[in-house]
């Protein structure tokens, strides 16, 4: 991600990518948020966000398992 808070038009902030990926994992997205996603998210952002999201998801499951077994 480019630093300095300068965003090109058509590029979303990391937080918006994270939100979109989270809701995609859940399988639900509010219509207005979805419209905003379509406007500003690029496919590369979604793919990178998805991979990070999947890694976090696996990590959180492993933490849960560790907690259950401790």
């Amino acid at each position: 991600m480019k630093g300095g808070g300068v965003r090109k038009p058509g590029k979303a902030a990391p937080l918006q990518v994270a939100k979109a990926v989270f809701w995609a994992f859940f399988g639900v997205r509010k219509k207005s948020d979805h419209a905003a996603d379509v406007e500003s998210l690029t496919p590369v952002q979604i793919i990178i966000g998805g991979i990070i999201g999947a890694a976090l998801f696996i990590g959180s499951l492993l933490m849960l398992v560790k907690f259950m077994l401790s």
Binding site: A24, G27, V28
Partner: peptide, 8 residues
Amino acid sequence: YATASIAI
């Protein structure tokens, strides 16, 4: 989104 999520 749900389809993509199921796939992942």
